[in-house]
Design a protein around this nucleic acid. Structure first.
Length: 209
DNA sequence: GGAATGATAGTCT
DNA sequence: GACTATCATTCCG
């Protein structure tokens, strides 16, 4: 499949998601975020990707969570209101994007690990510095990959991702029905590694591994 | 198609 | 000063 034929969406598909959706536990939000759309406004259209893999991170009860040791300057947004973007920097070169959930004052977030790119693939390839016949998985199959494809950096931290139609980064719902979902241990962590808080759309070819 | 490896900086102790 | 996690590349069977 050629990436170069994929046009950007003229309009953002589906409807903007509401804060209420995110004001629940990370396990619920992580599961229900599968099949939803992450969109990014560009001057001449929209980048669109469907979420196919997430991980839930809890607060004080989860040793793998950034919020485990309490609130700091870095993780403060996890303790804030739901539906905000929490971006963190890892490996000295990559970003990962989370959406906060649970009520304000209680830490929780869902890490978006993989998307299936639907529109604007050519633009994503440019952002990823890839050329030629690129596989969709190389565009957005992985937390750092999708951040690069969507141009998500630390500047996005604490951005509202719900309710504001003017936001250039949104989560939207087009009532897509995901197929079978698998629940597995989370990836790339050493603490609380036994907890099964990773959610995947089984049929997707864009999973991070 | 899987395993091993190197690159790297921000955060907290 | 210790710790943390991803991706690209390379090597192997």
């Amino acid at each position: 499949m050629s990436v170069t034929s994929a046009q950007m969406a003229r309009r953002a598909p589906g409807k903007l998601m509401r804060e209420k959706f995110f004001a629940r536990g990370p396990e619920v939000v992580g599961r229900e975020l599968l099949g939803k759309l992450l969109v990014r406004r560009e001057p001449d259209g929209w980048l669109v990707g469907r979420i196919v893999e997430t991980e839930a991170y809890l607060g004080a009860a989860d040793a793998a969570s950034h919020a485990f040791r309490g609130e700091t300057a870095r993780n403060a947004v996890m303790f804030g209101p739901p539906g905000r973007v929490y971006v963190y920097f890892i490996y000295g070169m990559h970003f990962c994007v989370n959406v906060t959930c649970g009520p304000a004052g209680k830490a929780g977030a869902v890490l978006i690990r993989a998307l299936e790119p639907l529109a604007g693939l050519e633009r994503m390839a440019v952002s990823r510095d890839l050329a030629g016949d690129v596989k969709p998985k190389m565009l957005t199959g992985g937390p750092a990959r999708l951040c690069e494809a969507f141009g998500i950096t630390r500047e996005r931290d604490n951005a509202k991702i719900y309710v504001s139609p003017r936001s250039d980064l949104q989560l939207r719902d087009d009532n897509f029905e995901v197929g079978r979902v698998s629940v597995t241990p989370r990836i790339g962590i050493t603490k609380a590694a036994e907890l099964e808080l990773r959610y995947c759309v089984e049929s997707s070819g864009c999973l991070s591994r």
